[in-house]
Simulated assay, not measured.
Amino acid sequence: MLGGRWVKSVIAVLVVLAAVPAGAVAQDTARYILPPGNYGGLPFTANSTDQLPLYDALTPLRGNVTAADIDRYYLPENFEPIGPTTEEDTGRPGLRLVYDQYGIPHVYGKTRADVAFGAGWTTARDRQLLLAVGRYPARVAAADVPGIDAFSLVTSGKTFTPSPQAEALITKQRKLIVKTYGAKGRQIIADAKAYADGLNAWNKKNGRLQDQPPASVNDVIAVTAFIGSIFGAGGGGEASNADLLAKLQRRNGRVRGYRAWDDVMLADDPEAPTTIKHRFDYPVFTGGAPIGSVIIDPGSIQSVDPRQPPTAASAAKAPADPGAIVDAAKAPPGKQASNFQVVSPFRSATNNSLATMGPQLGYYYPEIVQQI
């Protein structure tokens, strides 16, 4: 928390090109920013908020932002350290860890395991607070617990103790990775092990979380599932959609009811704006050809709080926590989304592709992503 409040902001990524003579092609430039800063632990450091002034500096300029302003207020995305640097000793041969003036870690390793270890080390250093509050709630995302928003549960700071069954599910996922991907799967697990070793090494050196079990591959899998639940999850209105289908078929008959439902559920709208012409067909990941879904009885959905014992009273009462619990009988809550602007080389004065993207991520302090 900062000043008694959660700090919420955005990450913006820009590709900006300097003005050049007509017909010439400018050099590609990529810049980005992560306000309020890359460090997300406690107590605050200078790197907790040092990118916030850069982000705020563009606001007064409004429509008068120039390429020079972008160079001044956004960081170069070229993997080079910015300004003065400091090196941190991890005690691991083959690993070199350098922090620039914005506290952005640059990891140099002789082996793949060295780099993964370094990434874990810097994550423990820069995201200690988030790891402490999110380690076990992340299991909710891996288990895909119905009606619970894992992100809201993590950011609420509430304690959560996973059951042995939940932990067994994570272990099953670890084994499934190896079974499904073979040598690549074993490499994924090795990367996760080196990453967890880096987390544990930093914690041990700095005396943090010594009363907690060491980080493990299961933790890495759970947190990965948590991130995937934010950026890779879709839908959320399947129950209410099924209820609508049932009601339309009861009123209009099976065939006409389905046609009416399919019309309003049309996913491929010919009038929708698109940015690409190539068509992508997504495969079905059900383990086989789909054979249909059970249609629910009209009006039969009941919202319950999965954290409470199933009783008649709890079934009749809507969830009391609108943050972490979603009302299954209603449409999914609306969310703010990212935006972007793209210009093709044919419409660009610099004859280059232009892209401005942001906000790509709404976030809190501590941040769920980091610069590394």
Rank of each mutant, 00 (worst) to 15 (best):
I70Q: 01
Q165D: 14
Y195Q: 01
T274G: 06
T171A: 05
T90P: 00
V133M: 13
V20W: 07
P81R: 06
D100W: 07
A260W: 01
A215F: 15
R186A: 15
T224V: 09
D50R: 04
K204R: 13
P60C: 04
R259F: 07
R125Y: 11
I70V: 15
N47R: 05
T180H: 07
R259W: 01
N206H: 13
A22D: 15
L176T: 12
K330R: 14
R62I: 02
D297G: 06
G83R: 06
V107F: 02
A12E: 06
T59E: 11
S344E: 05
S348N: 14
I170E: 02
G237S: 14
Y55K: 03
I70A: 07
G4D: 13
L129G: 02
K184Y: 10
H106A: 10
A183E: 15
E271T: 15
F346Y: 09
I177H: 02
Y282K: 14
Q51I: 05
D71V: 08
V255W: 04
P290N: 05
P213C: 03
A190N: 06
L58S: 05
D28S: 14
S229D: 14
Y99P: 05
L248M: 13
A267D: 08
F226W: 13
L2A: 09
S338R: 12
F231W: 15
P332K: 05
Y108G: 04
G103W: 02
A190V: 02
L61Y: 05
Q336I: 09
K110Y: 02
L248F: 10
K8T: 12
A349L: 13
R112H: 02
A318F: 12
G4C: 12
Y55R: 04
T171L: 04
T66A: 06
Y195V: 00
Y74R: 04
S293A: 11
L17K: 13
G37Y: 02
P290I: 07
P146D: 11
Q370V: 06
F226P: 00
